[in-house]
Design a protein around this nucleic acid. Sequence first.
DNA 1: TATTGTTATACTCTATAACTATA
DNA 2: TATAGTTATAGAGTATAACAATA
Lengths: 157, 157
Amino acid sequence: MLEDSPLRRDLHWLAAQLKHGLSMIETEIAQRHGMSLWAYTVLVEVAGGPSRSQLALAAAVPVDKTKLVAILDELEAAGLDGRRPDPRDRRARLVDPTDAGRAALDAATREIRSVEDSLLADLDADRRADFVRTLQHVVTTRLAQAAGTATGPETSC
Amino acid sequence: MLEDSPLRRDLHWLAAQLKHGLSMIETEIAQRHGMSLWAYTVLVEVAGGPSRSQLALAAAVPVDKTKLVAILDELEAAGLDGRRPDPRDRRARLVDPTDAGRAALDAATREIRSVEDSLLADLDADRRADFVRTLQHVVTTRLAQAAGTATGPETSC
DNA sequence: TATTGTTATACTCTATAACTATA
DNA sequence: TATAGTTATAGAGTATAACAATA
């Protein structure tokens, strides 16, 4: 047998637990505001940038364009966003949030940030900043190298 | 709109990226040693403890007992573990690794640890220990509180 | 009657391909 | 001919229920 690693439970297990736990919590929050977590993720992008076509939106999230159709249907049925034809290209449809959509998004975002903040609340400011910075570094710099081109679309929710 | 959070990308997104990236990498490693990542996860438990029934194994991983059947079939077909009847209860079957199973497990584990270690390799020892300790703390202590009973079985792979 | 391992069934997600209307 | 959006189809993965053998 191999001797014990310094990582009691490995990084993969820890990341899976954290992701799964946050998914559960944030799914509940999103649903309380009338959205699935995927719909919340899309609405963040819809409200966070200029009016865009569904294709541009799909590239930004990122999510498959065929899946985006169902998500936008859900948001539209809940009155949280709307589609209108692009006057310059009648094939395309521009997506915009409604006022209710912006309100629901802000409320849900406040709750989600509050939960994520509270997870780190018992760390002092230095350790907390260090932790987040290190996690960002590992994900954006080291992981991209190690995984090569492996990390495509469809990574969350 | 809400003002920017100190988390550029939120914790959920970072955790999802890390988990997804490690899944891709470790799936490739496991398959190079003749296993799926689920089979590797089960084999870790099989080789890491005493001979146990499938039910005890399913509880330990954790994974559903019906799913475990298929995973053990895969391991058995690859010659990495074996099932034998429990002499004290003929309903139950005890699972043990073969010599080839232990060898494949050790080799795969070495590679997986190497990848996980290399992700943190450019951090000095203090920051690295701090990061892992904080992540373990957040997952095992803070997250369990916040998620309540939400984190059931089936959390990884 | 309850439990172990197994098989069968249904359900959810996702991935791919095909279709329409415009360009 | 190519592109934007949509719909339909197929596949993987998971969850639930039912079953045979044994306790």
